[in-house]
Design a protein around this nucleic acid. Structure first.
Lengths: 291, 291
DNA sequence: AATTACTATCCCAGAAAATAGGATAATAGA
DNA sequence: TCTATTATCCTATTTTCTGGGATAGTAATT
């Protein structure tokens, strides 16, 4: 089509060949093949003169539509698709949505004005591909070979309890003392009931006990606030409460483990610009927070 | 594009391959190549599930425009271009336009209602290709290798003179008597002043003389009507006058030559349907006339 | 829990095509 | 008449396309 249109434009095979930087034989062959496919003459031509036929004109009209669309697709490929546009579908647990995304989002959206974000909040681990998500945020490692886990940062962990609880229990001087306390256990966390503490001996773990286990940080925090016991929770998740005096940090700095924040996205050769942009933005936001 | 669109439609590589009757590896390769050209993922896929990405949807939209246009072009090729449509540009001398074309045309146009005819009348032999003509009608042979000469029929020739002229001259009994008459000579005609007559001897030619030569039949007829002499003219061109008594045929049936009516069109591998239709129609009209 | 059926991708060899270069015939202008 | 240019044909080479088999992964079934 391109060759045909160029011949029509340049009014000749040789000029068209020069314009397209191909051989004249190629041009000739293309036109001849087209004509024999149509069963129609597209150009009346002698060696010295060329005129497009009526059939040729009709084909040219259709050709130019197609070539125009192709050109738009090329433009789409080279510019639009390389920029973060469209809708970014993210899923994240409630506490991450509250603590990270909702704070990082305004800046992100004002940077990329062509972008819309759709956020589905929930702890349920959905099938990213099946439900059309571009990105999931999760804390801790996840084993899923079809997903890429991109580490965004580490959250420090803190031991917390309510002042009320602590006032009514024995004072905690060292890690081993935790064994005598009601420890809220998160079975999903990699350490479960073996809490990683610096002053706990050679292995660095204290095996704790408690009458509650829960797989949700928010619930755990609620329980602590109601003076139920001691919990290990991400720092950002309890810092506000510590500052306001609602919670007290126990054995500050003794926790010897961080928990990773991961961005998960489908394994693909070409990471979409919008996903890349969001991950970069979030990483930058988090590193700014940690100062 | 076709493969991509089919994958999107069938929601899978394997179903698309079956629908297109190609191998799954081909389908896979096409999509992969597209994606690496775009630098973008078009489908999020596992071995069991497939979902089009937002970028894929945008490309699909553009694809479908192109595929729709291609489909229209295919339709154009298979139906419209195979039928006599558009404009048929004909050139012919005045007398042929009067005698043949204008009479054959109404029927032709009522048969092919999608067709428009553009008739440029004139004796000048134009460059068909240069001036965009589809067809030229000429009497007698023309040497032009770039044109195809399609014989439509033979015109019988007649010797004619006005009754007035004949009354004032010696009676003509046989071919040789013509030597004593004023014969209007057409130097363009192949026989020039050697008129082909049956009773003229072994060679069949009579060398005639006259004080007028003219290369236009209509003028020749006008001269004859003005009692100037005897002329050789196509039968259809003088029959009306003979019937009305304005002209008289001399030595009826003695002329031993016909003159061919030719349709000339550019040498091309694919004769346009409209040209073919017109030639066929004209041939049919002429054969009906000769009965 | 193991098996089965199906899927997408990779790799490779053969098939199909596009391409360029040279040769040829034709044409317009010098 | 000669020259420069043109479209086409022919052929060898390069490039692209294609299908089959192997592989790894996945969902449903036994």
């Amino acid at each position: 089509m391109q060759v045909f249109a160029e011949v029509a434009k340049q009014q000749g095979f040789a000029p068209a060949a020069r314009a397209l930087e191909i051989s004249t034989s190629s041009v000739s062959r293309h036109v001849i093949d087209l004509e024999s496919w149509f069963g129609v003459t597209l150009f009346q031509r002698t060696t010295r003169h060329l005129a497009i036929t009526e059939d040729g004109s009709r084909y040219l009209t259709e050709c130019q539509k197609v070539l125009g669309d192709i050109e738009r697709i090329r433009h789409l490929a080279y510019t639009e698709l390389q920029q973060p546009t469209g809708t970014l579908r993210i899923t994240a647990p409630v506490f991450l949505a509250k603590a990270c995304i909702s704070r990082a989002l305004p800046d992100f959206l004002s940077t990329f004005t062509d972008l819309t974000v759709e956020m589905i909040v929930g702890d349920r681990l959905v099938d990213l591909i099946d439900e059309g998500f571009d990105l999931a945020l999760r804390v801790g490692n996840l084993a899923d070979s079809s997903l890429v886990a991109h580490k965004l940062g580490d959250f420090r962990l803190k031991l917390v309890a309510s002042p009320n609880y602590l006032a009514n229990q024995e004072t905690i001087h060292r890690a081993a003392d935790l064994r005598d306390h009601n420890c809220i256990i998160d079975k999903v966390a990699s350490f479960a009931n073996n809490w990683p503490l610096r002053g706990a001996g050679k292995r660095g773990y204290v095996s704790v006990n408690g009458n509650i286990s829960v797989n949700n940080g928010e619930i755990a925090r609620d329980l602590v606030l109601q003076h139920t016991g001691i919990a290990v929770l991400p720092a950002f998740f309890v810092d506000d409460h510590i500052n306001s005096g609602q919670l007290t940090e126990v054995l500050p700095g003794e926790i010897d483990m961080t928990v990773g924040l991961f961005a998960l996205y489908p394994r693909t050769k070409h990471l979409a610009p919008k996903v890349r942009a969001f991950i970069d933005h979030l990483a930058e936001y988090l590193s700014a927070q940690s100062h």
